[in-house]
Design a protein around this nucleic acid. Structure first.
Lengths: 146, 146
DNA sequence: TATATTTGCATTGTGAACGATTTAAATAAC
DNA sequence: GTTATTTAAATCGTTCACAATGCAAATATA
């Protein structure tokens, strides 16, 4: 005698968790080809929009903590994708900048969004319905981030 | 000159990834109180519906691999929540069963779904719109799982 | 029945996530 | 100007995810 609300099928979180994992897996072959992971790709998206940002700005943008982002950035530094240097105005800050290799990745990865997009395309995710889905997820995110 | 499709804000995956993480965080205080993690809670949901399942059935239900589920189950065994025993019909299988402690957790955690649910409640996630969101996520998941 | 293949689970190694704590620099309060 | 507080990153420890590989039991094939 299980309550309906306690069934796996009725859990919003399990759907989000699974959908997130499966889409990340769809990115994997496209990114690993260039030695990147999905979270590292997110960092690149942030830096391509605006280069030379402190760790904290990147973390805030991705809604992550610095203890997640710092080791990630160190790996990217080791790969020669970014540099990390002490801030001039504020010596506590570490400024993350793209290297040439990091900038060049932008062209090489231009087609990633539509490649993954077409893999995800289905009845529910088409140009007409996507805004609705985006809006709902944004509302959830805004509700939960403090 | 960044292409629109390459902006963080236009990425479906980033939304799913973030929403999933934030909801999991919302579960954390409710679950850690009982020494559970979110993936462990998912295993319990599966076992509460049907006890005594082989590792593979649990993994398939959660769309995870055994190399993720096995160590997770070992931790749950160490906590005295489940037992793991060799299958009788098929000696390769490991059958996972709830202990009394594992069964008792069901009552203690009955109110978890609505507690998290109310935390997630917003304009977009209300009884009327939830089915739409559920359906879209299901479509994405079905599209991507092979 | 002997060999090959498949299947169920485990092991290893890497990279996230994240709570908790630490260090040093910047700012505020006294 | 000294002390207290806040802030930016980093460190540590634990638990996922997951690719790759290994191993033994079950099944298929020769």
């Amino acid at each position: 005698m299980i309550e309906e609300k306690c069934k796996l099928e009725n859990q919003l979180c399990f759907r989000l968790y699974t959908a997130s994992r499966l889409i990340t897996q769809a990115y994997h072959p496209l990114l690993s080809e260039h030695g990147l992971t999905y979270p590292q790709y997110l960092v690149l998206l942030v830096l391509w929009e605006k280069d030379a940002q402190p760790v904290n700005d990147i973390a805030k943008r991705l809604l992550l903590e610095t203890n997640t982002v710092t080791p990630l950035l160190k790996r990217m530094e080791a790969e020669g994708i970014v540099t990390r240097s002490q801030g001039k105005k504020d010596a506590r800050q570490v400024i993350v900048k793209l290297t040439k290799k990091g900038r060049d990745l932008q062209k090489k990865l231009t087609n990633v969004p539509e490649t993954v997009g077409s893999a995800v395309l289905c009845e529910s995710v088409i140009p007409e319905t996507a805004p609705g889905l985006f809006g709902m997820l944004d509302d959830i995110i805004n509700q939960l981030k403090r």
